[in-house]
């Protein structure tokens, strides 16, 4: 049976059946590495992030990179036409991806991206939201929870004031955004399970 890699951070879902598992993995890793580096560069620009301990910077990035990438690349999921653009530029319909073995994660990603895009956030609001996603004091392995918590609170306050200023008649937007945080956690968990399954196979 053919193998597919239905992650849009891949250049294409097709996997060359002649390549070894290690080669497939290395090629995949090569395609998502620039996006991960972008997240790190983004994190470095969050005021206060570089003042956290090196250990906590790494822990936050390890735990949160996938969630930041989901927000950053939400526009790759075309809800109306039910398709996904892969990093190689090619679009694939949800039905085609289903036949390649995509499951609940893809459906959940669509639900999430649709709701996020419907909020109509500006680029600045989206960036601040990504900073809030990344700087979460309840990630595992954080050694200085108080420092991360203090930075998280500052970022949440900044996000609230930006949203309130930009959308004075839509007070629910801020609440809706905060409610996206547990949704992202859940996507992250589903994604980790799929990665494990991929590595095992």
């Amino acid at each position: 049976s053919r193998m597919y890699l239905v992650c849009p951070m891949n250049m294409s879902p097709q996997v060359d059946p002649h390549k070894s598992g290690q080669d497939v993995w290395e090629e995949f890793s090569h395609s998502f590495t620039p996006a991960v580096r972008e997240v790190v560069e983004f994190a470095k620009k969050i005021p206060g992030f570089r003042e956290l301990s090196q250990h906590d910077q790494v822990s936050l990035l390890k735990a949160g990179t996938f969630e930041v990438l989901v927000v950053r690349f939400a526009s790759l999921f075309h809800v109306k036409e039910r398709s996904v653009t892969f990093l190689g530029g090619q679009k694939y319909s949800v039905d085609a991806l289903r036949t390649m073995g995509s499951g609940d994660l893809l459906s959940s990603m669509f639900d999430f991206c649709e709701k996020l895009m419907n909020l109509g956030l500006s680029e600045e609001e989206m960036s601040l939201f990504m900073a809030v996603v990344l700087v979460s004091a309840d990630r595992s392995g954080i050694e200085n929870v108080n420092s991360v918590e203090a930075l998280q609170e500052t970022l949440i306050r900044a996000l609230r004031s930006l949203i309130t200023r930009n959308h004075p008649n839509e007070s629910a937007i801020f609440t809706k955004l905060l409610l996206k945080l547990p949704d992202l956690r859940s996507l992250n968990n589903m994604h980790s399970e799929q990665l494990l399954a991929f590595k095992v196979h």
Binding site: S29, V40, E41, V58, L61, K62, L195, L196
Partner: peptide
């Protein structure tokens, strides 16, 4: 399983990007 980021090689990419790639700088 508890640390998918390490399994992926993510931690290595993150550390290198955070610290700055020494080799690139030397070039």
């Amino acid at each position: 399983f508890n640390d998918p980021a390490s399994n992926l090689g993510l931690e290595d990419i993150i550390r290198k990007a955070l610290m700055g790639n020494l080799e690139e700088r030397q070039e």
